[in-house]
Amino acid sequence: MEPLHNKRHLTQSPLFHFLVLELICVLLMVSDKNQSIAQPLRNGLSYLAYPLIKTLEWPQQFFQSAQLALSRQNSLIQENTALKQQLIDAQLRVQQNTTLKAENQRLRTLLKAAQESPLSISMAFVTNLNMSEKKQHIIINQGSNAGVFVGQAVIGLEGVIGQVDIVSAHNAHVILITDTAHAIPVESLRTGIRTLAYGHQDAVILNEIPVSADVREGDVLVTSGFGNRFPRGLKVAQLTHLTMTENRMFQSATALPFVNFERLTEVFLVWPNNTPHNSDIAIATES
């Protein structure tokens, strides 16, 4: 039985307890904007969440390896032939590229332009867990333990995927270029006109093309390298639809990304050239 006269201290009442917890939540939300405060907390908690993620991933991995073990030899041979064909195609293209590269380098030396350094990338796998809500996120299986940082560019074989948005110790959330909160500086491959591409549902939209600019449907958009987030010249999207804005100040265009975000299994993290990541360090110590 509770006493009729509640003589408990104010600090012991549930209301006080509730208010304290809510205050902590508000403080956490505010401090989440500040990397240096929220990041250690996120990392710490993600160590607790790690076994949970592993438990859920295990049946999937088990299913995959079982599928591999049980798949018929016939289908494996077919897959092998298809892959060989792809390899031949790729090798032919590489041969062509070597001459182009040499030519490009010669021209750049003639023009005394800065040499473009090759991308340094590493691979990460996409986790098949429902770990995002409302935002267009994919989750990769590398986090701050592997050196992944917020704002790091993520690309796929077909083109740009997005950039790292939230990092925990073992995982990272990658925001897609089609998310409404994302914008990417692009340029048209044909004319070199530069603008910004904002995410919009399944596509990106370009709202600020000058009326006089030469753009056509079918133009390929590549990253312009402005803002130093994405290296220059990566394929982003293809223009599909072109209209005039209501006030007739700009043209606006819709473009479809080259990457199929539905069926991503592996992605590539782009590392800035001045900060070597783990594999670079390993190579450096070897030499």
Binding site: L21, C25, V26, L28, D32, S132, E133
Partner: peptide, 27 residues
């Protein structure tokens, strides 16, 4: 209430949402 707060935080970390969002609503 403490456990609701704790598991809410866990969900925030897993979902990559603003830290304390689920905690606040669950508390």
């Amino acid at each position: 209430m403490n456990w609701a707060f704790f598991y809410g935080l866990m969900l925030d970390v897993l979902m990559g949402s603003l830290l304390g969002k689920h905690g606040m609503s669950l508390v």
